[in-house]
Nucleic acid binder design. Structure first.
Length: 298
DNA sequence: AGCCAGGCTAAGA
DNA sequence: TCTTAGCATGGC
């Protein structure tokens, strides 16, 4: 089944490759193949259109709604951008350079589990871990593009041993993911209710899980639960914030950074964060003469 | 071949 | 309250 969605202000590649989701693979024709829910999808962009192909023949309108929601196409980007601080040239540049970047709305469990796996890992490694979890413990899904797998439910992972998770290269995160799976599946963490909670309550709910601190909770809240103001601060964002807003000021600690982001960026702070994140990484990539300019953040 | 990654926890100042 | 080691693994 195929379809097309009019999406004038959308950047598929930026959106799928900006470290929000870890299970999209690009194919040679500029498409991306991945799993949403229990289906394999192939997505492409042609100018103003998102072209989608789904492996299964289901209700067309339902399919289209699903993909629109997942890609964040049900949000009005212009309205969101208008809430950003108006006199911030640096942020405006980042927005311009990553025009059409959106926040995905992923499955909360897959998203939370992926970010539990992410700590002190590079994106390549996170992708490996998530792929292994799916291959070994998810259900196979046949498709025109090969066999893919669902991301295993919390119930499924809850029944595994820590050793089985370690075999998926989780390392010391294995016990965290196992605990998370158990807490979600036995109801001691109500992941299903998180999207409708007050932001602070939702964050506290996720942080009941060992291995989930502010950063990982923020990622899950922003990328899967609809909390557009959640503002995960990782190493890249920290670099961007210090460079743009605290130049050469020696002592700005994590707390002060957090306080700043909460008061400065507004109700869609998480979206601003994603633009800054992408741009900081772009800067890292486009640096010239790597032997000289390579410097870690102060 | 080390070094260091998109952190959290717990210990110690 | 703030700083820091330790954790496990792979890419560069």
């Amino acid at each position: 089944m195929t379809g097309r969605i009019n999406a004038p202000d959308f950047a598929l590649a930026d959106t799928l490759q900006s470290g929000q989701a870890f299970r999209w693979n690009s194919d040679p024709d500029g498409g991306f193949v991945g799993v949403i829910g229990r289906q394999v999808w192939r997505l492409r962009q042609q100018r103003n259109l998102v072209l989608w192909e789904a492996a299964d023949e289901l209700d067309h309108a339902h399919q289209e709604n699903m993909i629109r929601r997942y890609l964040g196409l049900d949000m009005d980007l212009a309205t969101i951008l208008a809430t950003f601080p108006s006199d911030d040239g640096g942020l405006a540049d980042a927005v311009r350079l990553h025009c059409g970047l959106r926040i995905l709305r992923q499955d909360p469990w897959e998203c939370l589990a992926s970010f539990i796996a992410s700590s002190t890992k590079q994106i390549v490694q996170i992708r490996q871990i998530v792929a292994l979890l799916a291959q070994r413990h998810g259900d196979p899904l046949d498709s025109p593009w090969g066999v893919f797998h669902t991301f295993p439910h919390a119930d499924k992972l809850a029944g595994l041993t820590e050793a089985a998770l370690r075999d998926c290269k989780l390392g010391f995160r294995a016990k965290y993911l196992l605990a998370a799976a158990r807490m979600v599946s036995d109801g001691s963490v109500r992941l299903d209710l998180v999207p409708s909670m007050e932001p602070a309550v939702a964050q506290a709910e996720l942080m009941k899980i060992p291995g989930v601190g502010e950063k990982i909770a923020s990622c899950a809240l922003l990328f899967s639960c609809g909390f557009d103001a959640a503002f995960p601060i990782d190493i890249w964002i920290e670099r961007a914030l210090r460079r743009m807003y605290f130049p050469r000021k020696k002592k700005v600690n994590a707390r002060q950074l957090r306080a700043f982001t909460r008061s400065y960026f507004g109700p869609y702070a998480g979206w601003a964060q994603q633009y800054l994140f992408c741009d900081e990484r772009r800067r890292g990539r486009t640096k010239t003469t790597p032997s000289v300019t390579r410097r870690s953040a102060r």
